[in-house]
């Protein structure tokens, strides 16, 4: 069993970090994991994306051209990656910044207003964590438990209320993906 996701957005949205946190959760579950960044010539403000593979056996090709899941954090990423989602797969759209959906009908699309949710909690920088919460809740690629424990481990050492604030936005993402049926288009 192998599962994959491509997180895509622009530089500064925390895309790479979200992917790394997901990979750590996969590791915590005892799975094989691989995190592959987009690395190549990119301009400032251009696209940034990473792919995370979680599997129960040795991971072969680190390059996945038709990922099971895609999370598009901005419009250029939607345009680039929505056509690549494997039929039957999941496309999560950051509806705060993207006002369209993919015309495809062979995938599930979920809208999560990451920026709005993060801003409501006065944690505008953490849209990646909102997205991570929504993605994990919706995809089940790793367990919510494993993901929460990774957040505790990674943010627990930081000063002040960083951990509490991070968990707060994470749970907001979880609720957004689980609750609001209107955001789902089959």
């Amino acid at each position: 069993m192998q599962r994959e996701v491509t997180f895509a957005g622009f530089g500064g949205q925390g895309i790479m970090t979200a992917g790394k946190l997901l990979a750590l959760a996969g590791m915590a579950e005892g799975k094989e994991v691989c995190w592959i960044p987009s690395y190549g010539p990119e301009m400032r403000g251009g696209t940034a994306y990473c792919t995370v593979v979680v599997a129960d056996r040795l991971i072969g090709s680190p390059i996945v051209n038709d990922p099971e899941n895609v999370f598009a954090f901005n419009r250029p990423s939607l345009d680039k990656f929505a056509p690549r989602v494997r039929p039957g797969g999941l496309l999560v759209i950051n509806s705060s910044l993207i006002d369209v959906q993919s015309p495809r009908h062979d995938i599930t699309q979920v809208l999560v207003p990451c920026n709005d949710l993060a801003n409501q909690l006065k944690n505008g920088r953490s849209i990646n964590i909102v997205g991570l919460g929504a993605f994990v809740a919706r995809s089940g690629m790793v367990s919510l438990e494993a993901q929460r424990s990774v957040l505790h481990k990674e943010f627990g050492r930081k000063k002040g209320d960083v951990l509490a604030a991070t968990l707060e936005v994470f749970e907001a993402g979880v609720r957004a993906a689980q609750g609001d049926k209107e955001t789902v288009r089959a």
Partner: peptide, 10 residues
């Protein structure tokens, strides 16, 4: 190759 340098794995 470049991927060996850039990828993350356990």
């Amino acid at each position: 190759d470049g991927l060996i340098g850039q990828m993350m794995e356990p």
